[in-house]
Amino acid sequence: MSDSMSLPRVRVATTSLAGCFGCHMSFLDMDERLLELAKVVEFDRSPLTDIKHCGPCDIGLIEGGVCNAENVHVLREFRRNCKTLVAVGACAINGGLPAQRNHLDLGDCLQQVYVKRDGIEEGGVPDDPELPLLLDRVHPIHEVVRVDYFIPGCPPSGDAIWKFLTDLIGGRTPRLPHPLLRFD
């Protein structure tokens, strides 16, 4: 039995809030290193496992900003359960593309999309309680909960995510060297 097998495996949860899943795709870009990672990591709630709710975890990776009430609930669930919470990518860190609506009035936005838009016959803002309500502005996740680390990039490269996670799991303060530290 190798050393890594004798250690308890690190439990990781991931989710995408107001994001495009691009950061998750980038996560998969770790390619064959995923197998390496799988030796030391087990996944909790994540699009990879389809587990619906998060249990106690070591690391939570959050893609995307906070645009609606459901995002708030999910983010709070992650914060409650994860020892270390990481903002992954431009949207989680700054609001990113979804935050482009922040300079518009939400009421005007909803009117434009659901009521006034050309081709809409019987317009109306959807009001089904199943649907989460939109916040008036899109927020980066650190404005809603405490966040421990940030991996910038749109998306961060698979190499950057790999470097960050191996640092974190290895007990080193995560440090992205210059070529990996980018904001685009």
């Binding site: 939400l106 009421g107 009001d127 309500l133 939109l134 916040l135 008036d136």
Partner: peptide, 12 residues
């Protein structure tokens, strides 16, 4: 309070 506009728009 940040949900107020959406509550008003949906009547929820």
């Amino acid at each position: 309070a940040a949900l107020e506009t959406a509550r008003r728009m949906t009547g929820r």
